[in-house]
Computed example of a mutant assay.
Amino acid sequence: MEEISGLPVHFVEHGDGLPVLVLHGSGVDHREMVGALEPVFRDRPGYRRVYPDLPGMGRTPVPDWFRGSDDVLDLVLGLIDAVVGDQRFAIVGHSFGGYLAGGVAARRPAQVAGLALICPIGEESRDVPPHAVLHASVDVAEALDPAEQAQFRDYFVVQTPATVKRFREYVAPALPLVDWDGLGRMSDQWRLSDASGDAPPYTGPTLILTGRQDATAGYAGAWELVERYPRATYAVLDRAGHALPHEQAGLLTALIAEWLDRVDEHRAA
């Protein structure tokens, strides 16, 4: 726990070395990205992974005076100052966390050693497909509590025993902890006032991962980010919705590992 601008920010960390700040999306907490990314680092030492709970989720409260994403970004930058200092660091973000991660790279381009965006939401979503289940091989009604079934069905396009297990372990425990009223207060001002699209291109190693069936953020809008990031790898994965980290865990692990290789190479140059 670290107090930032009077707000207690909860986070967990693993390992030592290059700091890697990981920002989760809306409606969950740090555990979703811990489950998604720790397999990447299982046999890869040299990284200090920092997983915070964003305001209104997990064990980080959202104060009454928070009014939008600008406040969240300022809090994230304050956390960076507190736990990373002036070291270089890499940053990973999923969904809303990806939006914030892009804002961090725009504000601190010289300090950010690498940027990875997973199903990032953007300023304007376009060509977002309707939610559709591609594959179902599990009885959701038997596998999950009634309160969890709707969230699972609306989130996953691949519904199998394996994705149910990941949902129960990494997503469901966070659901009762969400301050939906607090998040609602911020939703009208979720766009950053100094949109990163107005900033110079970020030139560090970048990864943009999207799901072909992502009914929340889509994949087409994220392609436009490629012009902002000249060192970007862009991938759109079939058999993946907004829950891509769970539905395509193997490809996520491989592509994050390759991105880390590029980050290390760039730092050593």
Rank of each mutant, 00 (worst) to 15 (best):
Y170W: 12
P161I: 11
P205T: 05
A172D: 02
E32I: 14
D145A: 03
G102P: 02
R31F: 14
G122D: 05
Q151R: 06
P19D: 04
L192D: 00
D261P: 05
K165P: 10
F11W: 06
T216S: 15
G103K: 00
R126S: 12
D139V: 12
F96K: 01
H246R: 10
P129K: 05
R44M: 06
P120Q: 05
Q149M: 11
L255T: 00
S5K: 09
S5T: 10
L244P: 00
L144N: 03
T203R: 15
Y202I: 05
E124C: 12
R228C: 03
F156V: 02
R262H: 11
R67P: 09
M186I: 13
V128L: 13
L244S: 04
H10S: 14
A195D: 09
F152E: 00
G241Q: 04
S5F: 08
L117V: 07
V138H: 06
P161M: 05
Y229E: 04
A106W: 00
Q149S: 11
P61S: 10
L73Q: 09
L237S: 01
E124Q: 15
A143L: 11
L79W: 02
S193H: 12
A150Y: 14
D154Q: 13
A232S: 14
L73S: 09
S137I: 15
H94F: 08
A82S: 08
H242C: 08
R48D: 06
Y47E: 01
H246G: 06
Q149P: 09
Y219N: 06
G58I: 01
W190V: 13
W180T: 12
R67E: 13
W190A: 12
L54G: 00
G25T: 08
A199Y: 05
L209H: 03
P55E: 10
E169T: 15
Y51I: 04
A269D: 15
P39I: 07
A36T: 07
Y155S: 03
P176W: 07
V12A: 10
A269N: 14
A150N: 14
E3D: 13
A105E: 01
G93W: 00
I121Y: 00
P205I: 02
A116F: 08
E3A: 14
R67S: 15
W180V: 10
A106Q: 01
A257N: 12
R88P: 03
L73D: 04
H30W: 14
S125F: 11
G114R: 02
Q248V: 13
A36Y: 04
R88W: 09
A132K: 15
H10L: 12
L77H: 02
D127T: 13
G184F: 07
A110P: 08
W223M: 15
A147K: 03
D145Y: 00
P19V: 03
V133S: 05
D127W: 11
P161A: 07
F96M: 09
H24P: 04
Y234A: 10
L183M: 09
